[in-house]
Simulated assay, not measured.
Amino acid sequence: MNNITVYTTNTCPYCTMLKNFLDDKGIAYKEINVQQNPIEAQKLVDATGQMGVPQSNVNGHWVLGFDPNSVIAHLK
């Protein structure tokens, strides 16, 4: 089972592209909207040093931006 978390904001077109990509592939993920959740936003910065979105954690590997190839590479 894959463990995927996608960090997003309301206004990020690449976030939508990433979610659509995962949905199209039938890949389940958890979404955390850092715009609505400042505590999670701070955890994200602490973990990666980055505030940009989308960021995804795919089975423990961080993927920055809309990077389908990296997401696929970390799937089980």
Score class of each variant (00 low, 15 high):
14 Y>L: 04
61 H>P: 05
8 T>H: 00
47 A>I: 00
49 G>S: 07
62 W>Y: 05
9 T>R: 02
65 G>L: 07
58 V>Q: 02
68 P>I: 15
16 T>C: 06
1 M>A: 15
55 Q>I: 08
55 Q>L: 03
52 G>P: 09
47 A>T: 14
46 D>V: 12
19 K>E: 04
42 Q>Y: 14
72 I>R: 12
40 E>M: 12
20 N>D: 07
49 G>H: 10
35 Q>Y: 08
24 D>N: 12
59 N>C: 02
59 N>V: 03
24 D>Q: 15
16 T>W: 05
23 D>W: 00
24 D>W: 06
61 H>F: 11
15 C>N: 03
24 D>T: 15
69 N>W: 05
11 T>M: 14
57 N>R: 15
41 A>T: 07
4 I>Y: 03
35 Q>G: 05
1 M>E: 12
74 H>I: 04
20 N>V: 14
46 D>K: 08
54 P>N: 03
59 N>M: 08
47 A>L: 05
15 C>K: 00
21 F>A: 02
35 Q>D: 13
4 I>F: 01
72 I>L: 07
46 D>F: 07
56 S>W: 05
29 Y>R: 03
47 A>Q: 02
12 C>Y: 00
32 I>S: 06
65 G>V: 12
50 Q>M: 11
33 N>A: 13
76 K>P: 13
1 M>I: 12
70 S>A: 13
8 T>L: 02
53 V>E: 02
12 C>M: 10
62 W>T: 02
42 Q>D: 10
24 D>E: 08
20 N>K: 10
32 I>Q: 15
19 K>Y: 01
42 Q>K: 10
4 I>K: 00
73 A>I: 01
2 N>G: 01
41 A>K: 13
44 L>M: 11
66 F>Y: 13
60 G>L: 06
15 C>I: 01
38 P>A: 08
49 G>Q: 05
7 Y>E: 00
57 N>A: 06
61 H>A: 07
65 G>H: 14
14 Y>T: 05
54 P>Q: 00
11 T>F: 15
41 A>S: 11
32 I>V: 07
36 Q>G: 11
6 V>M: 00
23 D>A: 06
3 N>W: 02
41 A>P: 14
5 T>K: 09
23 D>Y: 03
55 Q>C: 00
49 G>Y: 06
25 K>N: 11
37 N>Y: 10
17 M>E: 15
40 E>P: 15
4 I>P: 01
50 Q>E: 06
29 Y>L: 02
11 T>G: 06
57 N>V: 11
10 N>G: 08
62 W>V: 07
69 N>Q: 15
64 L>H: 03
31 E>T: 12
37 N>M: 15
71 V>M: 01
56 S>Q: 08
71 V>T: 01
26 G>D: 10
68 P>W: 11
56 S>G: 06
